[in-house]
Design a protein around this nucleic acid. Structure first.
Lengths: 113, 113
DNA sequence: CATTAATATAACCGATTGGTAAGATAAGTG
DNA sequence: CACTTATCTTACCAATCGGTTATATTAATG
């Protein structure tokens, strides 16, 4: 899991337009014009976003005549998820740690020396 | 899960220095100077990174005399993970879909009309 | 009190980002 | 062939980013 891949992936995910594009692509391939339609933005702007997503490996593009359909790619998404899930132990242990702390405080409340 | 929170979180995660800081904080609180030590970077640069992490809700800061210890915060991390995990179904189904496609192709190979 | 240590702030810089408008390219269609 | 459709490319712009140096603030310490 290379550092620069994660850089590109998280950076790509940091933009709401791009996240919306990814969400749309979950229900299947789409062309540039289809992807651009919901946004109040020119087509070149969408093309730029698609390039960012492609460089991050989050999508790939085919060729169908004059259309360049985009599809979601699983690998980069999985890589980012894996990185984040490595922190899951932290936030799950957190509540256990809080319990332990409360116990500790209770013990201090009961003076015994 | 607000859009602008995800914006800030993913943007914060897009920088390798900041990811390294988070990784370091998994093993407990640390001061600014402690966090800055491993990096070939001035202290103000680290302070800036910490501000980005804090604005994203990924860390919080305490006060211990002249030190401002940083600790990891679970909530924002969890939010980002949740967003990404929503895509897990996609990449898990992907292989099942591939299987289905291969079956389909096999059937086409065996002419039956 | 003078000094040192920990952190923050301000001003600045070059590179990148997210958008635009205008025009090029390339593929279907009458 | 002329026209339209889908997409890309090229400048251009303002804003943000990631870093710097220099300076201020605040707290500990001799």
């Amino acid at each position: 899991m290379s550092t620069s891949t994660l850089d590109a992936t998280f950076a790509a995910l940091a933009d709401p337009t791009r996240r919306a594009i990814l969400a749309r692509l979950r229900s299947g391939e789409a062309t540039v014009t289809e992807l651009a339609a919901p946004f109040d933005m020119t087509q070149p702007a969408i093309t730029k976003h698609l390039k960012v997503l492609e460089r991050a490996g989050l999508i790939s593009r085919g060729r169908d005549g004059q259309r360049r359909p985009c599809r979601l790619e699983a690998a980069a998404l999985k890589e980012a998820t894996d990185w984040l899930e490595d922190y899951r132990g932290f936030w799950e242990h957190r509540y256990r740690n809080l319990d332990a702390l409360l116990d500790e405080l209770k013990e201090k409340d009961a003076p015994h020396e």
